[in-house]
């Protein structure tokens, strides 16, 4: 596969990840563009022979974190995410909305592992490198996050604060 084809393939994956992160097609494309601009700027840091995908995902992760920080500076209010883009089926739509709302209740450290693994674009080790955490920490955050998500969606938990306060090290 040519490098151009590889970049195009990975951009498709980045767009998917960006859409889940932002829930808004325009914001997602903005995030992808910003990521590609940074990747162009950092092209010399890529090691030929290594997988391009985790490298690009890591740039997107860092870009998104920076944007969240900037947004937080602008407004310290709770995140005001747009209505999610969802599949057509009404039942699925409702279910997805519920899951996304529950996902928003999780801390960032748990939310991103869940999304990265759900996309099935990266291995555990690659996803851990994208988020710049040790593999053990990543697995712990993924597991705790998944279980917290399940309990929030199922109404088993006592809400975000109760779940998180008892969690200790996230």
């Amino acid at each position: 596969m040519s490098l151009k084809a590889e970049v195009t393939l990975h951009t498709t994956s980045l767009r998917r990840y960006a859409l889940v992160l932002t829930r808004d097609p325009t914001a997602a494309d903005d995030l992808v563009q910003e990521t590609l601009l940074k990747a162009i700027d950092k092209a010399d840091t890529w090691q030929p022979g290594t997988n391009l995908r985790p490298w690009l995902f890591r740039i997107m992760h860092n870009t998104h974190v920076s944007e969240l920080r900037r947004a937080k500076t602008r407004s310290d209010a709770a995140p005001d995410l747009p209505e999610p883009v969802v599949p057509d089926s009404q039942h699925t739509q409702l279910e997805l909305k519920q899951v996304l709302q529950a996902l928003d209740q999780l801390p960032e450290a748990q939310r991103k592992p869940i999304i990265l693994i759900a996309l099935r674009e990266l291995s555990y080790a690659e996803a851990a490198r994208v988020l710049d955490v040790p593999l053990g920490t990543f697995m712990s955050r993924l597991g705790r996050g998944r279980e917290a998500l399940r309990r929030i969606v199922s109404g088993l938990g006592k809400g975000k604060l109760a779940v998180l306060k008892t969690k200790g090290n996230i």
Partner: peptide, 11 residues
């Protein structure tokens, strides 16, 4: 939940 998130991503 993974499937739902992935389905949404694929849109």
């Amino acid at each position: 939940h993974d499937n739902l998130i992935r389905q949404m991503a694929q849109t």
